[in-house]
């Protein structure tokens, strides 16, 4: 007779897997830690020998096909042929540890579970395992060596950063980790409600909103006397850096008098250069330092940014993944937003 498994759903309001939470409450995390240290991240050849001989499906003897160890008894089953599932069906157990990365699978939820406590255990042992093999720490954060320290200290930009400016102090702290500006994002969400949430938004619109939020912030601080919604004649740091003046001269056909107006602008939309005209000559030189690219369609997609640092080193920032890139990769992208520094040249 087959045991008919009763699938139990978590309460709809419950975040995560209530079954794992319950088991942890009852039995703690020791059995999980034992599985991780002896079957996922070993620290000696003896242990790895045991791991190689044990991590085999009890039913089909396969060693590939995502072997899971039952967290509630000693059983190994593959996921591919659903042998771990048949164990759960027969035994009433429901939690399995996948032996490649240590992820926990819940049979009731029919899904893998993110559990901070267990993930910390996995990381700790993965770290130990890498160390024992002489490999680099897979989660290491970068510590500057002596020369890099000098470089950081003598960076002129660094000296201008005040001690309590959070972005700056984190940026120059020497940690080589992706920097998440969640406070800035929150600030923007608070001031531009239409940008809050998980809807897709346009990078350009976001950029303009960001400048506006920062302008309003600094405007207040610098004790501006005029209306903050009027961008003319604002002297805040944001406007000094990002606002340009577009001069348009209208010549009267009758009297040939010229009336000049200057409108503020924050960006220039470029025509696609078709190669017919010579590129404009200018007395100024601009230095490209960031390119925002959009991948995907009109309804949704993903932004990836190329950033230039240390003269000519480009980095590709794709969410938390930051990799080296070269100039030809950058030039071969479509380019949605381009950011330039102005370099002031002497007049000829």
């Amino acid at each position: 007779m087959a045991v008919v498994p009763v699938k139990k759903d978590c309460h709809p309001q419950y975040r995560g897997c209530c079954h794992l939470a319950e088991l942890k409450e009852k039995d703690g995390v020791d059995s999980y830690e034992t599985i991780i240290s002896s079957l996922v991240s070993c620290t000696s050849e003896e242990m790895r020998k045991v791991k190689a001989l044990t991590s085999i499906c009890s039913i089909c003897s396969s060693y590939s096909g995502r072997i899971h160890a039952c967290l509630q008894c000693i059983f190994f089953g593959c996921y591919r042929k659903k042998h771990i599932h048949s164990h759960f069906q027969g035994s009433g157990h429901y939690l399995g540890v996948e032996l490649l990365y240590g992820n926990v699978f819940c049979f009731h939820c029919d899904n893998y579970v993110y559990d901070k406590q267990l993930m910390d255990i996995t990381r700790k042992h993965a770290r130990n395992a890498s160390k024992s093999l002489g490999m680099r720490d897979p989660f290491e954060s970068w510590q500057p060596d002596y020369e890099e320290m000098i470089l950081l200290k003598s960076n002129r930009k660094r000296l201008r950063i005040t001690p309590n400016s959070t972005i700056g102090s984190v940026f120059y702290s020497g940690k080589r980790q992706p920097l998440i500006l969640h406070r800035l994002l929150h600030l923007i969400w608070m001031h531009a409600h239409h940008l809050a949430g998980f809807e897709q938004h346009d990078a350009h619109e976001f950029f303009i909103s960001t400048l506006d939020v920062l302008h309003r912030h600094f405007f207040r601080d610098s004790g501006g006397s005029t209306d903050p919604s009027n961008p003319h004649h604002c002297n805040c740091i944001i406007d000094r850096i990002f606002t340009g003046g577009l001069q348009s001269d209208v010549v009267c056909l009758k009297c040939h008098g010229v009336s000049t107006t200057i409108d503020p602008f924050w960006d220039i939309s470029l025509d696609l250069y078709d190669g017919s005209d010579a590129p404009p000559t200018t007395l100024l030189e601009y230095y490209l330092f960031a390119v925002v690219n959009h991948i995907g369609g009109i309804r949704g997609g993903h932004y990836v940014v190329y950033i230039r640092q240390h003269q000519d080193q480009w980095f590709k920032c794709n969410d938390e993944l930051i990799t080296c890139a070269n100039i030809s990769q950058v030039l071969n992208t479509e380019g949605y937003l381009l950011f330039y520094h102005k370099r002031i040249l002497e007049y000829e």
């Binding site: 050849e45 790895r48 020998k49 791991k51 190689a52 001989l53 991590s55 060693y63 590939s64 395992a129 890498s130 024992s132 093999l133 490999m135 897979p138 993944l321 990799t323």
Partner: peptide, 24 residues
């Protein structure tokens, strides 16, 4: 082969190498 790869830790090394190459 699978056993040797695991025992010696070579599997971990290969996995890290593969991960790096795929990211690059």
């Amino acid at each position: 082969m699978n056993q040797k790869l695991i025992e010696t830790g070579e599997k971990e090394r290969l996995r890290e190498l593969l991960r790096q190459r795929l990211v690059e």
